[in-house]
Amino acid sequence: MCELGDRLRAAREALGKDLGEFSRALGIKRAYLEALEACRFEELPEPILAKGYLRRYAQALGLDPEELVALYPAQAAPEPFPPASRRRRGWGVVLALVLFVGGAGAALWWWQASRATPSGEPQVIVVEPLPAPEPVRLRVLAQPPDAKVYLDGFALGAAPIELEVEPGKRVLRVEAEGFRPFEETVDLTEDRELVVNLEPLAPPEEVVEATSVAAQEVVLRFEGRSWVRVTTPEGERLFEGILEAGDELKYPLPVVVRVGNAGAVRAVVAGEDQGLMGRRGEVVERTFARPNP
């Protein structure tokens, strides 16, 4: 049993996706993803690249990349027995390999001797491995709240969301019912916070005509918690308090409305939906007048 591979495979199967979909979306060879799930680490490239693939795959599955990278073995296990095809090549091949290795060893000895330091000791050159790319932190805020966030086609969850991702050019998509989806390629070379305000779709045309009363009133529909104050244009206070999602206020026009969380209050004036009064957390004051006859 291999905990690393078992957790990858279980997460993928829970999403109902096959390896081909992740291979195309992440740009990683299917064979590498199969090797990760089967813990055949000897079939993967050098650990730096293999761990980068593991981070991206774990992130796409909604798992903790660093936790899984910690399960990656420090050294891939050597192959215990050569394949049968190689065993059948006979002693001639073995002898050729011995001669080749011996010649390579002699060449290496001569090269080191030719590069000896003045003290006579061979010069040792140490090649440091390239460091793995450091992940960057991405934070996504959206309006409306709880809009769904996708990165490279994989669901990350509902906004607001914050997580570490592999740096590079990534495709961000944010969508919510009743709003026009947002999609853009973002260059994640450093920690970023992105605020996405989705554009509401035009409401379907009403077949039933608005009554004369509705045509002369403002309806405030609360899609989240917000403080609100409603006054007449002369300053007479009609209402002040904190309302929750699902609450509604109606007043005859004209009125002055001031809200403390404009992204949570939708205004319908004379039967026409004018959308949210502003952005999330924004304090906005608006005067709603009677429509022209």
Rank of each mutant, 00 (worst) to 15 (best):
C2R: 06
G16Y: 06
L19F: 10
F22S: 06
G27W: 10
E34D: 08
I48P: 00
I48V: 14
I48T: 15
L49G: 00
R55Q: 01
R56V: 02
Q59C: 00
E67H: 01
L71M: 12
L71C: 01
P73G: 12
E79F: 04
R87W: 12
L95H: 07
V101A: 09
G105A: 15
L108T: 13
T117C: 09
P118H: 05
G120E: 06
G120K: 12
P122T: 04
V127N: 12
E134S: 14
L138F: 01
A142Q: 04
P144D: 03
D146M: 14
A147N: 06
K148Q: 10
K148A: 11
Y150R: 08
L151H: 00
A155G: 13
A155E: 15
A159C: 09
E166H: 05
P167T: 12
L172S: 00
V174G: 02
E177G: 15
G178W: 02
E184L: 02
T185L: 10
T185C: 03
L198P: 08
E199T: 15
E206N: 05
E209Y: 04
A210W: 11
S212A: 15
E217C: 08
E217A: 13
E223G: 07
E223A: 13
W227L: 07
E236L: 07
E240H: 12
E240I: 07
G241A: 03
L243S: 02
G246S: 05
D247I: 07
E248V: 10
E248Q: 13
A262C: 08
A264W: 00
E272K: 14
D273E: 05
G278V: 03
T287R: 14
F288M: 03
N292A: 14
